[in-house]
Design a protein around this nucleic acid. Structure first.
Lengths: 336, 336
DNA sequence: GTGAAAGCGCTAACAC
DNA sequence: GTGTTAGCGCTTTCAC
């Protein structure tokens, strides 16, 4: 089907080894031989056979990426950041969605391993029960976790300071006088969410306020889950006067619920969201949010992975990027 | 490093060929042999070596996906749809962003070919100058184009009826009495955009209206490009009273521009956008849009690709999915 | 049904 | 510098 090194070698009148060296860019080749090899290669239409290369060299120049759902703008941006730096370095990316499902994640990791990826970047679905991740570490497969850490897995992690970000958000609400602050979040099995919930609790505690568990709406990962949870939260006997939404999907769901309930922002309820997307400035009032450096998370994850793939054997690093608190209009402070 | 078929064979007391047949799921193996082979494999922790398999069988079970930018919700959704069906069939996806840059796209195609993907799904950046795509077809590499066709490339295409969608949108504006209808679109080199512009022109023509070229704002593919183009459009001497934005990025850019110019929707200007995203219902007024079946585009592309990879040699198909016109409040018709 | 043997296209020692 | 020679781990005839 394709032109092989051997054929190029024959056409150039050198041995296969020499042609392979010239074409593969390793070892010594005289300028003269190189020229005629390159010429022959061009003429015959030679194309590297990355599969054969991978088998022979045990290096695939391929990285596996597992995200919850590429349709989530957070993951899309992280994927973009990651692929930008990895591609630059000659890596190709295998990608897949876990849907925050542990079993799927495990299957994907298995698939990627059998494809012999040089490294893996994973946004782990749950922070526990992660034999598949521990095995990766044990097998010395370069691994970087992003967005979320996993207990007991000694791998690099690139994430934001979720607790602090959430705490800042809730403190902001408290400072404005709110005493009944609710939270809409997806499952605490997702480590980043757990940390955000923690930040919420800490903010209340620091203010000397009791935590009313009925104000904590925990749900699934979809927008619809967020919608339902928010609706229940605000339909309760004593609804919150302000709410913190733990990620962009929860924000959308909550906004939908509030609108349906006829609750106006910020008059009836103040809102602070996590994740800053384009549309948050397009709605009225624009959303006050905790912004994460999304692409940067992906980029840094890629950098760590590159380092590991190049043999960096230092202790696992936990890189915490800072969030930024962006005050806009959804808490009634008057827009910027 | 890893356990090989050979080792499993020895442990199971059979020949490598037999073990390979059992493990690879091809050829005949007696139930008895199969059992002991599977047992040995499990015990030793055997894992398929997909790279070796690919080299030997000349099938990688890998598909390359090229999108403009995975951060664009349109591409993210298409990618999701595509990966859902392909993964189901045992394929893994190599993905990359072209940034609507022809040269990058060519490089990516080359990379994917050298990785010996079984097929390629591409949202081609430009509708012309596509030697790399024609070559794919000539080399009989299964290929499906999505979102956009390419002149002279005999491959399956999955797309929507862009012209009709745009035409419907503009006719709607015309019906509401607008006589100066503008359009903000990215470059007509992108086939889908060209078709939408065509639809715009056709709508005007059908209504017996002249086309004022100054109302056609063509620009780059980013939101900022859209912003700048819209700003210029509305700052002109005789600005439009209504505008059609040819994709989601143009919509955002235009909304930003209008807001900055203090132009209110729908009172000062009516707007219809292409692409229906979550936030379009969150803003005030909610956007009237042309909705595309995004995930479905990806899914159908995957189906075509599967058929081709399985040997379907029939004439290239052009699959046109229908758009849906969703009337909301941005043209002043009163929300749903 | 099973085994022996020849590749797939390349890299990597190692000798010259 | 260049060539020879083994593999890499699997699939795939083709006998038996």
């Amino acid at each position: 089907m394709g032109v092989t090194v051997k054929e190029v070698a024959q056409a150039a009148g050198v041995s296969q080894a020499t042609a392979a060296r010239a074409l593969g860019g390793y070892g010594y080749v005289s300028p003269h031989a190189r020229r005629s090899i390159e010429q022959a290669a061009r003429k015959l239409g030679y194309r590297t056979h990355a599969v054969a290369q991978a088998l022979a060299s045990n290096v695939t120049h391929t990285v596996g990426l597992v995200v919850g759902d590429i349709e989530n703008p957070f993951f899309a941006a992280a994927a973009r950041g990651l692929s930008d730096v990895l591609e630059q370095e000659g890596y190709t990316i295998l990608f897949a969605n876990s849907d925050e499902d542990l079993e799927r994640e495990q299957r994907l990791v298995e698939t990627f391993r059998s494809r012999r990826v040089d490294g893996l970047a994973i946004a782990p679905s749950v922070s526990t029960a992660n034999r598949h991740l521990a095995e990766l570490v044990a097998a010395d497969v370069p691994l970087v976790l992003f967005d979320r850490p996993v207990r007991g897995v000694k791998a690099d992690v690139v994430m934001v300071d979720n607790k602090r970000g959430a705490q800042t958000a809730v403190e902001h609400l408290l400072r404005l006088g709110h005493r009944r602050v609710g939270i809409v979040s997806d499952a605490p099995e997702i480590a980043s969410s757990a940390e955000r919930i923690q930040g919420y609790r800490t903010a209340l505690a620091s203010a000397g306020l009791p935590v009313d568990e009925r104000l904590i709406a925990l749900t699934g990962s979809s927008r619809d889950d967020g919608y339902r949870a928010a609706k229940a939260l605000f339909r309760a006997r004593t609804p919150p006067s302000a709410v913190f939404t733990a990620n962009n999907l929860m924000s959308v769901g909550t906004l939908l619920a509030l609108r349906e309930l006829g609750l106006r922002i910020p008059d009836d309820v103040a809102l602070v969201g996590f994740d800053d997307l384009e549309w948050t400035t397009l709605i009225e009032p624009p959303l006050t949010v905790v912004r994460q450096p999304v692409q940067e998370i992906g980029r840094q994850a890629a950098e760590r992975l590159l380092a590991r793939m190049r043999g960096d054997g230092s202790a696992p690093r936990r890189i915490r990027l800072q969030t930024e608190f962006v005050v806009r209009g959804s808490c009634g402070e008057g827009s910027p």
